[in-house]
Design a binder for these strands. Structure first.
Length: 713
DNA sequence: GAGCACTGC
């Protein structure tokens, strides 16, 4: 191992420029106190350090320091002002503010409270904060409510799918980014909000990226209706950037819908943790970026001399060679070398990238980073999704090492040479560049944004990817000949929180008289692996599954599982069991039948949500009873883009893209191999596997999807 | 006869 001490990790995090310095007294004070703690560390006074850490943790919540870029003159003028005042002032002065805040800076919990106290909600407006994950939205809201001494759902609340803890008195609202996007469909100007804060923007989730483009437009529109101009609105007009026309078109579409209503300007705050501040600032026309200093202890970084071919071995070697504090008994150590019992080692936690951001595990001192990540990739030409292992980005490497310095000084062992670190991309490839865009394009169309290619994305998805999704939406009938949202089909589809192809299946089910069946089917298709097969009980699990299997395919099999669970629950309830008891019984039923109870619960939630929405759409909710041919015909009419024919060698060939695919061994049709099938998932592992499959009559395709198949034959 | 990072509406 080659040691490279990089000192304070946050210095490498400092995106703002060389001129950035800790300019305020609080920050300098903090720095010294950290140094003092380090000294005690080296004397080995661990307990004292721990107490200090806890003390500091409490302090840092309300007392975080800020550094800022440029404005030396301004800095000299301003005496020591409290961080709260300065941040509020920054927000007042700038329409859009980029805040680069390190982990532990308290920005997510504190800033909304500062803004509330400064009167940003005085006319009943709401401060909205988006998070990429549900768990973050909920936990942060709970903490802030506690800090404000209010009940969650009063002044402070959260809203995520299936769980809305807000009320008319909510002023600080945490939510998932996807939910705010849905909200924009109902209220395109987001008129309830005076401030919107996009947290964890560096993660560049699909929803965050779309929100950024959308919010930029909303902000411009609102500043126009209120007679004010955004900074970057002026800049764009002056600099003659080529997208100006499209932006104007998008804005005027919003303005038309705005009618004569006047909205106050929308303040936008983008919070990011890594090297991307410049990109965000440029995207928002040179928006101001400030740096909020977090609490981070020094982390020593180690690199290997050479690339590691077997990183599991490298991890084990690292654990035993370099970490004295992992105390192991001889036999356990032996077992660890045989790899199988690694998880039994006290003090060793194997984590996926969930530990990069979502979960903070207390007590982490050492991080071993193999430098790899498994990401989803999508090929727009073939429509095939796959999971590939790729090198992480510098940002991710910093996130990973940063986990070692939350409570005290730490060490990070990177299982790659330092020269490799230099070659890593600064940040992760945004999700929008590596996924199917159909759903997001449908939502943009619903917002009146017709020119998707011209839409001002922070990073544009490829033309091929946009074209593929537009074609898919057109073939599903969601778009008209000139690629506008169709009425009623397209409009109905935007109202449903499902993949467009599943929304279409529901709309068609109304005509095929099988809405009851299709509601259950798409709910079950919207969750992961309903069946659960532990390695040691493989045979038992298979036996349990036969009870539900349908020779027609996986869709009817899923339907059978859902109905069996519902019947079981009904029976329990008729015996007078309370909900809680019934829930427990269902859990046991799932275990006995090798069903993943979490997935089933999700499917039941989705079912009740979409059922409610369908009922509001004046679509016919009926059951086809025993006439399952109707149901399969409806599947064929809905999923005709995913049809495949059997080849002489037992493989299948997809009709739309001529890919050779195999039925996944988990399918009930794995052995029977019918001649013609439709499927829902195409995933590449070693070979191209299709999953969730139903047998159909090939003649149905030309009959039920003439827009695609009649012209071809 | 496979092999499943992580999210979200």
């Amino acid at each position: 191992m080659e040691k490279r001490e990089r000192g304070r990790e946050r210095e490498t995090l400092d995106v703002t420029s060389d001129s950035v310095e800790a300019n305020d007294g609080e920050a300098r004070q903090r720095w010294r106190s950290e140094a003092a703690i380090e000294t005690r560390d080296s004397n080995g006074e661990a307990r004292q350090r721990r107490e200090q850490t806890i003390e500091r943790e409490k302090e840092s919540e309300r007392d975080f320091a800020m550094r800022e870029r440029g404005d030396e003159e301004e800095k000299k003028k301003s005496p020591k002002v409290s961080l709260e005042k300065r941040l509020v002032e920054e927000v007042r002065k700038h329409e859009t503010l980029i805040i680069v805040g390190e982990t532990g800076s308290g920005k997510t919990t504190q800033l909304p409270q500062f803004l509330f106290n400064a009167g940003f909600c005085c006319n009943g407006e709401v401060i909205g904060i988006t998070e990429p994950r549900r768990v973050a939205a909920v936990s942060v809201a709970k903490r802030v409510a506690e800090e404000c001494s209010v009940e969650v759902g009063q002044k402070v609340g959260y809203s995520i799918r299936f769980d809305d803890m807000t009320s008319s008195s909510t002023r600080i609202k945490y939510m998932t980014d996807g939910l705010l996007l849905r909200e924009a469909l109902l209220d395109p100007y987001l008129s309830r909000y005076s401030v919107i804060i996009i947290d964890e923007a560096h993660e560049r989730t699909l929803h965050t990226d779309v929100l950024l483009g959308l919010l930029k437009n909303v902000q411009l529109t609102r500043s126009h209706t209120s007679g004010q101009l955004c900074n970057y609105g002026n800049m764009k007009a002056n600099s003659g950037i080529i997208c100006m026309n499209e932006n104007n078109a998008q804005r005027s579409s919003l303005q038309k819908r705005c009618q004569n209503t006047k909205y106050p300007p929308l303040k936008l705050i983008i919070m990011s943790a890594s090297l991307d501040a410049k990109g965000f600032s440029e995207y928002f026309g040179g928006a101001r970026a400030v740096h909020v200093q977090g609490r981070q202890y020094p982390i020593e970084i180690f690199y290997t001399h050479h690339p590691e071919s077997d990183y599991i071995d490298a991890v084990l070697i690292t654990i035993f060679q370099d970490m004295d504090e992992v105390e192991l008994e001889g036999p356990l150590k032996e077992k660890a070398w045989r790899r199988t019992h690694l998880h039994r080692l006290w003090g060793v936690i194997l984590a996926t990238n969930i530990a990069e951001t979502s979960v903070t595990i207390p007590g982490i001192k050492y991080v071993i980073d193999p430098g790899l990540v498994k990401v989803r990739s999508y090929n727009p030409c073939t429509g095939i999704e796959s999971l590939v292992i790729v090198p992480i980005s510098k940002g991710q490497a910093l996130q990973r090492s940063g986990r070692a310095g939350r409570e005290g000084p730490g060490k990070c062992y990177r299982l790659y040479p330092e020269v490799e670190f230099g070659k890593l991309l600064n940040s992760t490839v945004p999700e929008i560049k590596r996924c199917n865009l159909s759903n997001i394009i449908l939502q943009l169309k619903a917002l009146g944004i017709d020119d998707i290619i011209g839409f001002d994305f922070m990073e544009k998805p490829s033309r091929a990817s946009i074209a593929k999704s537009l074609e898919e939406l057109f073939l599903l009938g969601a778009l008209t000949d000139d690629y506008k949202l169709s009425d009623p089909v397209g409009k109905q589809m935007t109202g449903l929180p499902l993949d467009p192809i599943y929304s279409k299946a529901l709309i068609l089910a109304s005509d095929f008289n099988c809405m009851e069946e299709m509601l259950i089917t798409v709910a079950m298709l919207s969750v992961e692996s309903i069946f659960y097969a532990p390695q040691e009980k493989l045979e038992e699990a298979r036996g349990a599954r036969i009870k539900f299997s349908s020779i027609e395919g996986d869709h009817q099999t899923l339907l059978n599982v859902y109905r069996a669970a519902s019947e079981f629950l009904e029976k329990i309830k008729t015996t007078g069991s309370k909900d809680k008891i019934a829930g427990k019984s269902l859990f046991k039923w799932c275990r006995d039948n090798f069903i993943n109870s979490r997935s089933l619960r999700q499917a039941r939630d989705i079912h009740s949500q979409i059922r409610g929405q369908i009922e509001n759409m004046s679509l016919r909710v009926a059951s086809c009873g025993d006439d399952m041919v109707q149901f399969r015909r409806c599947l064929a009419a809905s999923f005709f883009l995913n049809a495949a024919l059997k080849q002489p060698d037992g493989s299948y060939r997809t009709l739309t893209s001529s890919q050779t695919v195999q039925i996944h061994p988990s399918s009930v049709l794995f052995r029977s191999k019918p001649d013609c099938i439709i499927f829902n998932e195409l995933v590449r592992t070693n070979v191209n596997y299709i999953r969730n499959i139903t047998r159909i009559d090939p003649l149905w395709l030309a009959e039920l999807a003439p827009q695609y198949y009649a012209a071809q034959d």
